[in-house]
Design a protein around this nucleic acid. Structure first.
Lengths: 265, 265
DNA sequence: AGCGTTGTTCCTCTATGCGGAACAATTTAT
DNA sequence: ATAAATTGTTCCGCATAGAGGAACAACGCT
């Protein structure tokens, strides 16, 4: 009865357990059985059993006092493995350091996953006032500076899909018009960096530039985020220049050679 | 028929899927169906189905070319959430930066999980020659400097359990004698820091000191790791002093007040 | 080519995992 | 204080989901 003619077999219990894991977030780091039962549409007993199993392998931890479950250290271990095996990560991480020092703001590495943009590394700035982000965070590509850079250098049909998927307004500044988005991407390609001013989160502004691998393909973005109070208009070109520079540094570490740039778009 | 009178119900399919996830490591980041089938003692078809399900939720990614599976970005997301919600992490991370600059070596934050020690944060040094470690890495407590510090300030029965569990020699320098271990822990308590010289990995030496929370309890350890060539004997006391200092800084950020130290052991 | 692998799908049967209810342990309301 | 309500876990019986084995398809290796 499924739409797909070729649907690989999915184990419902496993899928449900994974959905439980995914339901945790930075802002809701712990959940109760009944909450999950309702939000996932499963019987309490089912959720309870799934959680017990997850707990037995350290994927969640039960707080004996409150009966709340939170993510366990097993997921931390796995996350570390992923991080260590992403080439971009190991090569570009040192560049982030320099960028943080040069700009005084928090920097990230981001890649595309599907239509979203995910932070794969974070280097925190030393300022007491900081933007709350986290590694692994998934954001809509059309509303972040890193996402827009990645879109600007991705296949046309990726942009099409993003648009088809809907441009939701997260703030008043969000880009919701397809033409406006395409235009913005063109501007980004010309300038070489992208800026997002309160397009996703009120009070924050970010600047991003592309990172290319040895084939010249844009594989990730390097980005700087800060509160708008510190990211003043007049500073943006200077920050843009620094971010582009950092992107180039990182690209070179990945084996990219600028002399071959004309081979690619 | 189980030994436990009160055994919570475990779902085998879920458990097997989690076992698959756990079987990945930094050194074996990708696996084939047949490998997993053998190592886990499950039918190929079973493993294939489990992997499909894991892939459908982004927990693993299938390489179309090689048919190998590796961990997906979902686990990165989860790892970031855990990191963000560990109080020690957010408070102590800035201290790591300073320590890396002061010592020129890679620094970690570590906590105990069960009988093992896990790195929850890493700040890489700028040296080209670096020790390969990763966040989430689980090590035996009795063979690392951070683990020994944590043991030195933990309940007696934790130490007993570690000993009961067996002191395995990972290198010629590993502590395998219970009395020797207990003695070492006493020395650590007197000195305030611990040293591990090739006790787990040949060629590396590490120094660690405790971090206390607002109640005075030792909740984590701060540690510096480097190749023995750079971690010369004569430097160790100086490094020890710096690590202790960093531990105190971090403790204060967690609300620890030294004046109340005599209230606790 | 042909053989030895590989991973996925199909198939059958059993055992597993589902939902509902009962229970126990709390917390909230009165 | 006691009662009422809400929590999470265990029990239970039935239906079905999931395990293993075999067949099939796709490669890769001599």
């Amino acid at each position: 009865m499924s739409k797909n003619k070729k649907s690989p077999q999915i184990l419902s219990s496993v899928r449900n357990s994974l959905r439980i894991l995914k339901s945790f977030s930075t802002f809701e780091p712990s959940k109760k059985v009944s909450e999950l039962s309702e939000s996932l549409g499963l019987a309490k007993s089912t959720v309870s059993r799934l959680l017990s199993t997850l707990a037995s392998e350290g994927f969640v931890i039960k707080d004996k006092k409150t009966n709340e479950y939170r993510l366990g250290l097993s997921v931390l271990t796995l996350g570390g493995i992923v991080t260590n095996n992403l080439e971009i990560h190991t090569e570009a991480a040192p560049v982030l350091n320099k960028l943080v020092n040069d700009t005084g703001e928090t920097a990230h590495l981001a890649i595309m996953d599907g239509l979203d943009t995910i932070y794969i590394h974070k280097e925190e700035c030393h300022h007491p006032v900081r933007i709350l982000t986290h590694v692994g965070r998934r954001n809509p590509s059309y509303s972040t500076s890193s996402g827009k850079v990645l879109l600007a250098y991705s296949e046309d049909d990726t942009v099409d899909k993003v648009i088809e998927n809907g441009l939701v307004a997260h703030t008043q500044n969000s880009i919701t018009n397809p033409d406006e988005l395409r235009n913005e991407l063109e501007v980004i390609r010309q300038k070489g960096y992208s800026v997002s001013t309160e397009e996703l989160t009120i009070g924050t502004r970010s600047v991003a530039a592309p990172i290319r691998d040895h084939t010249g393909k844009v594989v990730s973005a390097i980005t700087v985020v800060g509160p708008i109070q510190r990211m003043k208009d007049y500073k943006i070109p200077e920050i843009g220049r620094k971010v582009i520079e950092a992107g180039k540094d990182a690209s070179e570490r990945l084996g990219y050679d600028e002399r071959f740039v004309h081979r690619f778009t």
